[in-house]
């Protein structure tokens, strides 16, 4: 039995069953949510075009391979796949940039390979740190984001180290 599939099916069945029990108009509620997320995805396209341009040029020219080659000794010491290092560096800085690099890493190594799984885990368990901290502190009078930034980056570093460790333990 596959745990993640069971969780996924459980959430889906629960959402529908509970909505039916509460007499929610399932069709219109589902479509409303779907429409909203569809807009989010479409709005992503212009930025993604720009970042994919940069990433595919870096990939095709050989710069990414060259960079991976340089970073390999360091990555090996940390037990981290070198293919994921550019992603780990970009993740806290740019959300769409991370999507573009994740796509590239999964295409190069395969989504079910060790680097592919680490890249996926890392991407899904961290956020666009700089952007988030900036937006949150822009909303208030107290402008002291330094402690928040340092702590959030410490969290990112933990995500970076433990994504490789956890994938190795859980998925072999």
């Amino acid at each position: 039995m596959d745990v993640s599939s069971v969780i996924l099916l459980g959430v889906t069945v629960f959402a529908f069953a509970y909505a039916a029990y509460k007499r929610v108009d399932i069709v219109s509620a589902f479509c409303e949510g779907a429409r909203e997320n569809l807009k989010v995805a479409i709005d992503l396209l212009p930025t993604l075009c720009l970042l994919m341009l940069a990433v595919s040029m870096l990939r095709a020219s050989g710069v990414l391979d060259w960079l991976t080659g340089i970073l390999t000794p360091l990555a090996v010491k940390l037990g981290f796949p070198a293919e994921c290092l550019p992603l780990a560096i970009l993740r806290p800085i740019s959300g769409s940039g991370a999507i573009a690099l994740l796509e590239d890493a999964l295409r190069q190594c395969g989504p079910d390979s060790f680097p592919g799984r680490v890249a996926s885990t890392l991407c899904a368990s961290s956020e666009t740190t700089f952007y988030t901290v900036a937006v949150y502190f822009a909303a208030v009078k107290s402008k002291k984001p330094k402690a928040a930034l340092i702590s959030a980056l410490a969290g990112d570093l933990a995500a970076f180290i433990f994504s490789a460790v956890t994938v190795r333990i859980m998925l072999g």
């Binding site: 959402a15 909505a19 997320n37 989010v40």
Partner: peptide, 16 residues
């Protein structure tokens, strides 16, 4: 993402 948006909106509208 659209499918997930739909499922999550069910959770929201039902009060879960």
């Amino acid at each position: 993402m659209a499918v997930w948006g739909g499922i999550l909106n069910l959770l929201e509208k039902s009060g879960a």
